[in-house]
Nucleic acid binder design. Structure first.
Length: 301
DNA sequence: TGCCAGGGCTGGG
DNA sequence: CCCAGCCATGGC
């Protein structure tokens, strides 16, 4: 790789770029002309997986160091060493077989937190729309390649803290607007230091996150897993709940406490990684789930 | 306890 | 075409 180039090729084994970028961890990636286009920090970038070579990357502005991209993609992580820690049971084997190469990204904490506050009771498509509007209206403009539509960085907490609730509601986020605004103010006022959460114990970090308005256990776990680097954090949403019920408790309906104990003990030190595989597996098979007894499952089939 | 609060997409009628 | 359902959190 030459210095000050707008292109590079990152060596990466066992990396399913499409699954990773579309798996509901991050919301600003779009596929276009066989590339995945997005924004990381203040950089426009597009990515393309090349068999046996790795991940090709192009930026709008020359780079002399691509560490920011390796960090974001976690390209240097040895996936096998993670997969080896998964429990050796049928649901995990099936989930890994369905999308081997699925990875966790390492996102910027504020963007991750704000995005997941906006994610509550929304589906991925709508989350993308809200975040698109938010970036367009409040994010700093970024250099893009010639002939490309202008693009914006994710808005800073300070910028959103200075917005009105009405302006945020105009981005179609509905009742999440006051939560996002109040959390942006706390972050901007340094009531919480998101970057230092990774230095806490996972329990301490979670406790601090759930103090923020609009942040419950599910969203806190998303931030811990996708931004703070806690591989044991285990967000439980409806898809994961469905996976746990169908795959591990097909007969009885476990209590929430029992379920919490199960996920805390069964999946090992990389439980969050295991969760991502279950989530993706359920999303792939959700429509055609074979073992349905509930009306909800039958309606889906 | 149970309902409700945006809203855009999906599936079924 | 229309309409119910989806969805994680907080407030009532």
């Amino acid at each position: 790789m030459r210095p000050h180039d707008t292109q590079t090729l990152l060596p990466a084994h066992d990396y399913d770029l499409a699954a990773t970028l579309s798996s509901g961890q991050a919301f600003r990636w779009r596929e276009r002309d066989g590339w995945w286009e997005g924004v990381i920090g203040a950089r426009w970038v597009r990515l393309q997986h090349r068999d046996d070579q790795g991940i090709a990357a192009e930026t709008a502005v020359p780079q002399n160091d691509w560490q920011w991209l390796r960090d974001y993609l976690q390209a240097d992580l040895d996936l096998d060493s993670v997969l080896r820690t998964f429990p050796d049971d049928e649901p995990m084997r099936a989930s890994v077989a369905a999308c081997r190469g699925l990875r966790l990204l390492r996102q910027e904490p504020w963007e991750c937190l704000a995005s997941f506050i906006l994610s509550s009771t929304k589906q991925i498509v709508q989350i993308q729309q809200i975040i698109g509007l938010l970036c367009e209206r409040f994010g700093a403009p970024l250099p893009t390649p010639p002939g490309r539509a202008p693009l914006h960085a994710f808005p800073t907490a300070a910028r959103l803290a200075a917005a009105s609730e009405g302006e945020l509601r105009a981005c179609k986020m509905g009742f999440r607007a006051p939560n996002l605004l109040a959390t942006a103010r706390q972050v901007a006022d340094e009531k919480i230091d998101l970057k230092s959460l990774r230095l806490c114990s996972v329990e301490d970090a979670r406790e601090r996150l759930v103090q923020l308005p609009g942040v419950g256990p599910k969203i806190a776990n998303c931030v811990l897993l996708f931004a703070c680097g806690f591989p044991q954090a285990f967000p439980v949403d409806v898809w994961v709940m469905k996976a746990l019920r169908q795959l591990y408790f097909p007969k009885r309906r476990p209590s929430p406490a029992r379920l919490r104990r199960f996920v805390a003990t069964h999946f090992g030190p990389n439980a969050g990684y295991a969760q991502q595989y279950l989530f993706h597996y359920m999303r792939l098979n959700g429509r055609a789930a074979p073992q349905q007894t509930s009306t909800a499952a039958r309606r889906r089939a």
